[in-house]
Design a protein around this nucleic acid. Sequence first.
DNA 1: CCAATCGTGTAGTAGTTACTACACATGGCG
DNA 2: CGCCATGTGTAGTAACTACTACACGATTGG
Lengths: 117, 117
Amino acid sequence: MAAFGDHVREVREAKRQEDRRYSLRQVAARVGIEPTYLSKLERGELAPPSEETTRKIAEDLGEDPDMLLALAGKVSSDLQAIIRKRPKLFAELLRELRRAPDHAILSVVRQVRDGDW
Amino acid sequence: MAAFGDHVREVREAKRQEDRRYSLRQVAARVGIEPTYLSKLERGELAPPSEETTRKIAEDLGEDPDMLLALAGKVSSDLQAIIRKRPKLFAELLRELRRAPDHAILSVVRQVRDGDW
DNA sequence: CCAATCGTGTAGTAGTTACTACACATGGCG
DNA sequence: CGCCATGTGTAGTAACTACTACACGATTGG
C-alpha cells in the first residue's frame, strides 16, 4: 500500500550495499529534508512528499522522476501544463489510449518523433 | 489574469439573457455553493474551486469539464490516473506532442480509435 | 411601490499539506 | 571500549485549500 516508501527504501538500500553514502541520513541531507521525515516516508507513515522533494529524491537515487512521482500519486507539473494548454485534445487522446497496449503507444511516440504529420 | 472567473461569468451572463434561472444565486444553489463564493470566483477574488465544484459548474453551464478544469489550473483526476499507471510512456508521449499541431494530435486520436496497432 | 431577488463586502474556519525539532536507543568499527 | 553515525518515536506548526455565514444596499417584476 505504501508503494512510494517501499520503493525508495528498496532502491536506497540497494545502492547502499556498494556506497555507504546512501544511508537514510545522508540521502536526507543531500535532498534537504530531515532524516525523521525521510524515515517516515520510507515506512509509509506519512503521505508522499511534494513534487519538488520527490524530484530531488529521484535525482539522488538515480531514478526516473516521472515514475517516482507516479508512485507518489502525482503527475509532473510540466505534463499538466502541456495538457492544460489543449485540454480537450489531450483529454480525448489520453482516454483513447487508456487501454492501448504499451507497444501501440510507443509506436505513436516514434511516429510523432519522426514528424510524419 | 482571472481566466476562470471571467469565463464563467461570461458564459453565465450569456445563458442568462434567455433563461433567468442563470442568475449567480440560482447557479450557486444548483451547484451547491454559497452565492458569495461564486461571486468571488467570477471576479477572481478567490482562487478557482476544487475539481468537484468546477465539474458541477461546468455541468450547470453546459461547458466542457476538461476545458473549465484547465482554466482552473487543474487536470482531471481520471487523466492523471491514466498517466500514473504508465508514467514513463505517457510522459514521453506528452512531451513529444507538446509542439505538435492540433491536427496531428487529432489524427493520432483517430488512428488509435480505429485500432490499427 | 414594495417584496422578492440580486450581487457583493467583511469575517471567520475546518481540514489538509508538507514539513521541522528534539530526544533516544542501537550498532558497527577503529 | 568508546564514540560517532544510524534509524526512529513523539510532538508541534506555518501555510495553504476550499469553503461558509451574516449583513447590506441595489435592482426589478407584478
